[in-house]
């Protein structure tokens, strides 16, 4: 692959496609948590690698933007590197690993630890946008359930979890209710990250390429994790300290460091960890 930037339109997608995506984004922002169908395109990376997020980012990027890409919280995971390189090549935008300096952050599976600001956009890569999918496999059914705000099935599922396991046994992609209306899948972020979505000053955009859906949470919008009064939601993490920066309030990776299975814990958000060290 030796194509230069001139072979592509800015940010790869043609302007018509970007306009189509922006329309879907605006609709999504107007109806927080509602899944807007959009004519997702084949991208030069596979479905499941973040094609939805990439299309949303491509539609948002301007030449002055500074882009950060993370996967599992880190800028150095292979897929984050690959997507960052893609936009460096096809959009020529500046990139950064510094959360505070980015204007657009594309993420897979994490929300940065640092509180985001009003002039930032957080783009999530979403595999299955439908929070009710594993309770009802048919899209035709789940769309009706959302339209009628028919969410009893979800509450029954959470109740059954408690009756079987003593607590809600969802550790990631923990369902939320947005603006007191739509139940939404926060993408497969650990539930530790859920509270960061609530009244977040940044725009949060979600792109599901293969499933052809876009949804959004506007700034300062109520996002509540589903729970019961007697079983309140709990943002859990490994009860350890980061062995690199000493943080006690971050989401930690558990790394096996020898054949005996010795574990080491360190921040999943690599940029936050670096900033705490120095």
């Amino acid at each position: 692959m030796s194509n230069s930037e001139e072979d592509f339109n800015f940010a790869y997608l043609d302007e018509q496609t970007k306009r189509m995506i922006r329309r879907a984004l605006i609709k999504a922002l107007c109806i927080p948590g509602y899944q807007v169908p959009f004519a997702s395109r084949e991208m030069p990376m596979p479905y499941g690698w973040g094609t939805g997020g990439v299309q949303v980012t491509a539609a948002c990027l301007q030449e002055t933007d500074v882009l950060k890409v993370i996967d599992q919280g880190s800028d150095d995971t292979t897929n984050a590197v690959s997507i960052r390189k893609f936009f460096e090549r096809v959009a020529g935008v500046k990139t950064t690993e510094n959360t505070g300096k980015a204007s657009v952050i594309q993420t897979r599976h994490r929300i940065p630890e640092q509180v985001l600001s009003e002039d930032q956009i957080l783009v999530y890569q979403v595999p299955i946008p439908e929070p009710l999918r594993f309770l009802e496999p048919r899209e035709t059914e789940t769309r009706v359930m959302h339209a009628l705000e028919e969410y009893g099935l979800m509450h029954v599922k959470l109740y059954e979890d408690i009756s079987i396991n003593g607590e809600i046994s969802t550790a990631y992609a923990y369902p939320v209710k947005v603006n007191d209306r739509y139940i939404m899948d926060p993408s497969p972020t650990p539930k530790f990250d859920n509270p960061k979505m609530n009244f977040c000053p940044a725009i949060q955009l979600f792109g599901a390429g293969r499933e052809q859906r876009i949804y959004a949470v506007p700034p300062y919008t109520k996002v509540i994790s589903l729970d019961f009064e007697d079983y309140p939601f709990e943002a859990s993490r490994a009860e350890k300290t980061c062995e690199i920066c000493g943080a006690t309030n971050t989401y930690l990776d558990e790394v096996v460091i020898d054949d005996k299975g010795t574990r080491m814990f360190s921040c999943s958000d690599s940029d936050y960890c670096n900033s705490q060290k120095s």
């Binding site: 596979p46 499941g48 690698w49 599992q72 292979t78 595999p127 650990p190 990776d253």
Partner: peptide
């Protein structure tokens, strides 16, 4: 193929939560 194969990408954050 994309969705089936994507499970080989890093998922350790979710696995950690589990």
């Amino acid at each position: 193929t994309g969705f089936v194969e994507h499970i080989k990408l890093p998922h350790y954050v979710d696995f950690q939560a589990e």
